[in-house]
Nucleic acid binder design. Structure first.
Lengths: 237, 237
DNA sequence: CGACAGCTTGATCGGAATCAACTTTAGTGG
DNA sequence: CCACTAAAGTTGATTCCGATCAAGCTGTCG
C-alpha cells in the first residue's frame, strides 16, 4: 500500500509541433495556440501535487495518469488520460494531483497566462473539461458502489473501443466477439485506479481466466474471448 | 440499497433575477447572460439522467446533488453542489446524472445554444468546471481509499468554512474550537455520497458522539466540539 | 393518539484486505 | 548464453471492516 517512490523527471526534446489531436469533436487543438510539444519517458513525472501550476497541458500522444497520495502512502489514481485530454488546470495556484506518464508521451504545453487571454482556448477547455467530468462521475460510481469483479470488468471494457456504452454496437461479427488489448498499467496502478489491492486485482483476473472470459497471454496482453460476457459483469446491465 | 423513488418535479415561479452568485472569484455570473431564474422545492428533480440536455444551470441559492443509478438500484451521489456551481453540461446530448435539490433552490437556467455563442460564458464555464474537477478528484480519494470513519470525518469537515484545507487557519479561539452545523442531507443521501450504507454512517456518527468529538442535537443539527480532533480523523494528516 | 418515515442499535455474514510464500518475467553482467 | 538478481505477479490462509438482516427507537404530522 505504501507508495513513496519518487518518479524520475523525464526531460525530453522539444519538437517543433505535435500531432493533430482533437478533444472530442473540437477542431481547435492546443498546438494551434503556440506553446511547445514536450516528450516524456515512461513513468516520468510531469509535475507533482502541490507544485505551483504554471502551464496547461494537452496529451498529444501516449498515456498519462493523475493521482493523489494520502500522507500514509495510500494512493488513488483519479484519472487515466486519453489523447486530447487536458490537465494541469488547478484553480488556485497549486496542482491538485501528480501527473505521471504510463507510456512515452508527447504533451503540448501552454503557459497559463496565455490560456487566460484566448477565447478559443477557453472554449476548447470548457469542452474538454466537461468531457472529463463525465468520466469522473462514472468513476465515482465504480469506486463507491461496484464490487471488485465489476470494477475490473468495467476497467477492461473501457479499453474496448465502441463497446459497453449506451450506444454499444454489439459484436461486429456475432460468431467472434473477441478483442485483443494491451495494458499500459501495472497491477499496482490498476489497483490504485480501481480502489482495490494488487492481490484482489490479480485474483479477479485469474477468476475471469478460469471462467473462460479472458485469456492472459502476457501480464499486459489480454485477449477477451467474449466481450459481451465481460460487459454483463460491469454492473451496468 | 434499492433506491427507486421518483422525485416530484418542482415547478417554481420564475423570478426576474437571481442573487449575485459568483463562481470562485469570477465576476461574471449566469444571471448577466439572460436565461431565467427558476425556483425548485426540496427534493425536486431538475432533470433525469438520460434526459436530453437542453440548458446549462447555475446554482444561485440552496443545495443540489447529482447522482447516478445502477440498474439494480444502487445509487452514487457524485457531487453535492455549492452556490455558484454549474451543472447540466453533458458532452453529447444526454445528461449523465440526475440533478435533485436537497433544499429549496434557485437555479439560473441558460439555453445551451446561448452558451455556445458567448465567450464570457465559456470562460466562466471553464473556471467553474476546473474548480469542480478538484472536488471530484478529492472525492475519488475518499471513495477509493478512505475508511468509513475517515469518510464521515471528511464529509463533516467540508461543512466547516475555512478549515481542513491546506490553508487551514486553525481555531479562531484556541479555547473554543467548536462549530455548529446543519445537515441538509438525510442519512441515506450521506451514505450514497460517501459510498457507505445508512447503518454504517449512523454507527460512525454514534461513535464520534461516544468519543466526545461531536454532539448530535437533532439528527440534522450537529455540534462539533473539537474541529481539530475531527480533522485529524480525515486521513489527510 | 396512532402511523409512518427516518434513524439507531445489535447479531451475523461475507468480500476484500492483509500477511506470507511462491512463481514468473525482465534486466544485468560475467 | 546462462547465472544471478530484482521486480512484478500469483496464490493461499487468515483477519477484519463494512454490508446485510432484523428489531427497536424517535420525532413528525394527521
Amino acid at each position: 500500500m505504501a507508495y513513496l517512490e519518487v518518479g524520475t523527471r523525464g526531460q525530453g526534446a522539444v519538437a517543433a509541433r505535435g500531432g493533430a489531436p482533437v478533444c472530442a469533436s473540437v477542431a481547435t487543438s492546443f498546438s494551434d495556440f503556440g506553446g511547445k510539444a514536450v516528450h516524456y519517458d515512461t513513468h516520468a513525472v510531469i509535475y507533482y501535487e502541490g507544485d505551483p501550476a504554471k502551464r496547461l497541458y494537452e496529451l498529444v500522444r501516449g498515456s498519462v495518469m493523475l493521482y493523489k497520495l494520502l500522507p500514509d502512502g495510500r494512493r488513488q489514481v483519479v484519472e487515466v488520460l486519453q489523447t486530447g485530454d487536458i490537465f494541469g488546470l488547478a484553480n488556485g495556484d497549486e496542482n491538485d494531483c501528480t501527473a505521471e506518464t504510463l507510456t512515452d508521451a508527447t504533451v503540448q504545453e501552454v503557459d497559463l497566462r496565455h490560456v487566460e487571454q484566448s477565447n478559443d482556448l477557453q472554449r476548447t477547455l470548457a469542452r474538454c473539461l466537461s468531457n472529463q467530468m463525465r468520466g469522473l462521475h462514472e468513476h465515482a460510481v465504480l469506486l463507491g458502489r461496484k464490487s471488485a469483479l465489476e470494477r475490473v470488468a468495467s476497467f477492461l471494457m473501457h479499453l474496448v473501443p465502441d463497446r459497453g456504452g449506451i450506444d454499444c454496437a454489439g459484436p461486429a461479427d456475432p460468431d467472434n466477439d473477441s478483442y485483443d488489448l494491451r495494458l499500459f498499467m501495472t497491477r499496482q496502478e490498476i489497483a490504485d485506479y480501481l480502489g482495490l489491492t494488487i492481490e484482489t486485482v490479480s485474483r479477479v483476473i485469474s477468476d475471469l481466466k478460469r471462467r473462460g472470459v479472458i485469456r492472459v497471454d502476457k501480464a499486459d496482453r489480454i485477449h477477451l474471448n467474449r466481450v459481451c460476457s465481460l460487459c454483463q459483469m460491469t454492473g451496468m446491465h
